[in-house]
Computed example of a mutant assay.
Amino acid sequence: MSRTVYVNGEYLPEAEATVSIFDRGFLMADGVYEVTSVLGGKLLDFDGHFARLERSLRELDMACPVTKDELLAIHRELVAQNGIDEGMVYLQVTRGNPGDRDFSFPDPATTPSTLVLFTQSKPGLADNPTAKTGIKVISIEDIRWGRRDIKTVQLLYPSMGKMMAKKAGCDDAWMVEDGFVTEGTSNNAYIVKGGRIITRNLGTDILHGITRAAVLRMAAEAQMEIEERPFSVAEAQAADEAFFTSASAFVLPVVEIDGEAVGTGAPGPVAARLREIYLDESRKTAV
């Protein structure tokens, strides 16, 4: 069955959806994106995703083509038209089509942005069996550009990192810069030692994860101790637990790093509890 997608004000069958070959998102990766999870037909953390979208656009001197209320309505319409119970809504804004290829970009007031959204149905998203078994990661050098806090569509190296992990018989990769873990290919990274949750502090070198913010807030409310600082691969291998967070995976335990078991080599209680809390609270606040 063909999905209904959204392109610049129109709801279209996916086979009829097109953008210009001169769109700067296609030619220059000049765009940003967000992914909002859907559980029970409702959107998780929509406010946070919109706030980050606005920030990413502002950092790149791009205009937001719709209001928050308009974007929420588009999300809801796509979820309804495609019958999404569990899954995701992908949103992408690019600088649009200035008329020809040029490194210099036009004034945002003169060139309309391109806005595209589509849904992905993911039955069983909340009951991911990997949450009970954990995942294995490898470490790779972080050679991305310096503004990783902007959620751009420049995803070639993270994609290559996932393929490196797959080739090594693992599930994902954690990136390392100057001896310290920055983040995963599409997630924020954490370790647990002595009951304390340790994760890299915010800056321009990691994405300001929406799920990260929610999980840390919920952990603090549950009176868990949190320390925001860099950690090394060796420290992670010696930790009691490790896990990652993302909008599409929520909280998933990491049980092996570069072939070394983390803790007992099985998912730990902190990650399991945080996943439980996050899913419970997110369902209550979903829109």
Rank of each mutant, 00 (worst) to 15 (best):
W174D: 13
R58D: 15
K166E: 08
I143V: 14
V32I: 10
M224S: 08
L43H: 10
I21Q: 09
F250Y: 10
N82C: 05
I191G: 00
E228Y: 11
G87N: 09
V270G: 01
P112T: 06
T111A: 07
R3E: 15
I135W: 09
A247F: 09
E16W: 14
D23V: 08
T199G: 07
K167T: 15
R3C: 14
L125Q: 15
V181W: 08
S104I: 08
H75F: 08
L279H: 12
T36Q: 04
P112M: 01
A242M: 03
K122Q: 11
A15C: 11
T119K: 05
R144M: 12
Y33A: 08
P13G: 12
E177Q: 15
K136P: 06
G25T: 02
A214R: 10
V137D: 06
A272L: 12
V116M: 14
F50E: 10
T152R: 07
V35G: 09
G259N: 07
I191E: 02
P65W: 00
V35T: 06
I197L: 00
T114C: 07
G31H: 05
I150R: 05
S282F: 06
F118S: 14
F250C: 01
G161E: 01
M88H: 08
L115R: 05
G184P: 13
A236E: 07
L279R: 02
Y278V: 07
G25F: 03
P129M: 06
L53C: 05
G41E: 07
G259T: 00
V176Q: 06
L57C: 11
E276L: 09
A15R: 15
K122H: 11
T4A: 10
V38A: 01
T264R: 03
D69I: 01
D23I: 05
A17C: 09
A73M: 02
A286Y: 06
N187E: 14
V66G: 03
A168N: 12
K68E: 15
V7G: 07
K193H: 14
W145N: 06
D30Y: 11
A80E: 07
A272H: 14
G40F: 07
Y190P: 04
T114Q: 05
G124V: 11
P112R: 09
A15D: 15
G83C: 04
C170D: 06
M28W: 15
H208M: 00
R101I: 09
K68D: 13
V233A: 09
L78F: 02
Q81S: 02
V137E: 00
M175A: 14
A17P: 04
T18H: 15
R217S: 14
D107P: 07
V287I: 12
V287W: 11
T114Y: 00
E228C: 13
P65K: 02
E177P: 10
Y278K: 07
L43Y: 13
A213E: 09
K167M: 14
F103K: 11
T36V: 11
R196L: 10
K68C: 09
V255E: 06
A109I: 12
P112G: 02
S56C: 13
D45Y: 13
T199L: 05
E10V: 12
K284D: 02
